[in-house]
């Protein structure tokens, strides 16, 4: 459903992504693993189009020069020049790193803002669905987003992204800073979302162990290059991967 080929991104002269090619099948969960600054978030920004916004803002400020190359094909359409909101309209929704909850809005309002692209019938259906997979949120519906705990904020961020009715959901480090208990809830929920909504999901994460059981396919990125790819079990069996990403 999505094929991104030969992606290259430079921040000034620093190479952040180097000839990365990924292929995402519909109704699948794909994991992208790599350490800090390996290029995971840059890859997410490339797919969601946020890189174009960053480019423009930096150019206006006279800041860093960001250049990006490569083609992204989504449902047989070349989208690498489309703006982020146009891609969101096509169904590519990014749930960003560090969640970026609307802190001054209540949980309910966060979800409603997320439903910008949905009709009111879809909004209602998705709202019930989000509260069904994250029952935790139900009792905090009228609390300000900024006052939630990290785990609750992550649930809200994923819920907000679902309200935008994604076809391809990008989750950038959804487990960052969560307790093992919340990690488990989030991972279970991600699997449940894929099963019931039949959408494609990409998850990036530094630490692969909690994610690997639910992925169909995975990529490992180091210093901006994709160094290894394979199904979950193939990655698990690779001794280098084992020591680097599973802490064995």
């Amino acid at each position: 459903m999505l094929k991104a080929s030969d992606l290259m991104v430079f921040y000034e002269n620093m190479l952040a992504l180097n000839n990365v090619t990924i292929d995402i099948k519909s109704n699948s969960i794909t994991g992208i693993f790599g350490s800090n600054s390996a290029g995971k978030s840059t890859l997410m920004h490339m797919i969601s189009g946020i890189i174009l916004d960053m480019q423009k803002k930096e150019e206006m400020k006279g800041g860093e020069r960001i250049s990006s190359y490569g083609t992204i094909d989504f449902e047989h359409q070349e989208i690498s020049k489309l703006k982020p909101h146009e891609r969101a309209r096509m169904g590519i929704i990014l749930c960003p790193e560090r969640r970026r909850i609307f802190a001054e809005s209540s949980v309910m309002e966060n979800l409603k803002i997320g439903a910008f692209l949905s009709t009111s019938a879809e909004t209602k259906e998705n709202l019930d669905y989000v509260l069904h997979i994250f029952p935790h949120l139900t009792k905090h519906l009228h609390r300000q987003g900024g006052f939630l705990s990290g785990g609750e904020q992550q649930m809200l961020a994923i819920g907000r992204a679902i309200m935008a009715k994604p076809k391809l959901l990008l989750l950038d480090e959804p487990l960052l800073g969560l307790s093992p208990l919340y990690q488990k809830i989030v991972v279970t929920a991600i699997k449940e979302i894929r099963n019931s909504k039949k959408i494609a999901i990409i998850i990036t994460e530094q630490y692969a162990r909690p994610i690997i059981p639910i992925i169909e396919y995975g990529y490992i990125i180091e210093n901006g290059s994709s160094v290894l790819e394979g199904t979950g079990n193939e990655l698990l069996d690779n001794p280098d991967v084992k020591s680097a990403y599973f802490g064995v």
Partner: peptide
């Protein structure tokens, strides 16, 4: 930016 990601 978070709003852009949601299609605004």
């Amino acid at each position: 930016r978070a709003s852009m990601m949601l299609g605004i």
